[in-house]
C-alpha cells in the first residue's frame, strides 16, 4: 500500500528534499481518487506513478499555490497514462497466465508465469515513474515562472473548489438515513472551525 498518493507522494518528496510539498500534492490526488473503487475490470488512474510525478512537480509549492495546482494536474495526467499501461499489461497477463493451459499445469511453471507478471508490473510502474520525472525536469523551463500575486489567490481557490467537490463525492452510502450522517459530518466540520476560532 505504498502506492497510495498520501504515502507515495510525501516519501518521494522526502527523497527530493521536500516532504511537506509532497504531502500536499499527495493529499490532493488522494482525495480526487477516493471515488475510484478498483472493482472488477474497472480501473482508475495509476496512483503510484501519479503521486511521485506530482511530488516532483510540487517541489517548493509554498512559493505559491499555483505550483501545487499544476503539480496535482500533472499527477492526474501521469496517472491517466498509467491506467492505459495497466490496461495493456492486463491483456499481456491474459496471454501469460490464461492462454496456454499446459503452461499452468506444473507448480514450477505456474509460479514462474505468475511471478513474472508481478515483475512486469514493477518494471512498468518504475518505467512510467521515471519517464514522468524526466519529462517534468525537461518541462521545468515553464515551472517557476513568476505569476502575478493575485493569481496565487485564484489558484488557491481552484484547488479548494476541486478538493471540496472531491470530498463531497466520497461518502457514498447505501443504507437509509444517510442525511443524518451527512449532517453529522458537516456538524463535525463546523465544530472544528468554531474550536479553532475559540483557540
Amino acid at each position: 500500500m505504498i502506492s497510495r498518493p498520501i504515502v507515495a507522494a510525501p516519501l518521494a518528496g522526502l527523497l527530493l528534499g521536500d516532504p511537506i510539498s509532497g504531502m500536499w500534492a499527495g493529499a490532493v490526488l488522494e482525495i480526487l481518487s477516493l471515488r475510484q473503487l478498483p472493482i472488477g475490470a474497472s480501473r482508475g488512474w495509476d496512483t503510484g506513478p501519479a503521486a511521485v510525478a506530482a511530488a516532483t512537480a510540487a517541489l517548493g509549492w509554498e512559493a505559491g499555490p499555483e505550483a501545487l495546482l499544476v503539480a496535482a494536474a500533472y499527477g492526474v495526467a501521469v496517472g491517466w497514462v498509467g491506467s492505459w499501461s495497466v490496461h495493456g499489461l492486463r491483456h499481456l497477463n491474459a496471454r501469460l497466465v490464461a492462454g496456454d493451459a499446459a503452461a499452468l499445469e506444473s507448480p514450477m511453471r505456474l509460479t514462474g508465469r505468475h511471478l513474472s507478471a508481478l515483475v512486469l508490473d514493477l518494471l512498468r510502474a518504475a518505467g512510467l515513474t521515471g519517464a514522468a520525472v524526466i519529462c517534468w525536469v525537461l518541462l521545468e523551463g515553464v515551472h517557476g515562472v513568476a505569476v502575478p500575486a493575485r493569481a496565487g489567490t485564484v489558484a488557491a481557490l481552484v484547488i479548494l473548489s476541486v478538493v471540496s467537490l472531491g470530498l463531497g463525492v466520497d461518502v457514498r452510502m447505501m443504507a437509509r438515513g444517510r442525511r443524518v450522517w451527512r449532517a453529522a459530518g458537516v456538524g463535525a466540520a463546523l465544530g472544528v472551525v468554531i474550536g479553532l476560532w475559540l483557540r
Binding site: E62, G64, A156, L167, G185, A188, A189, V192, V193
Partner: peptide, 18 residues
Amino acid sequence: AAVSGAVVPLLALALGGT
C-alpha cells in the same frame, strides 16, 4: 462522514492562509 466534513474547513483555512 465526520472526518471528510472536518477536513473541509481545515483545508480552507490552510489554503486560504497561503
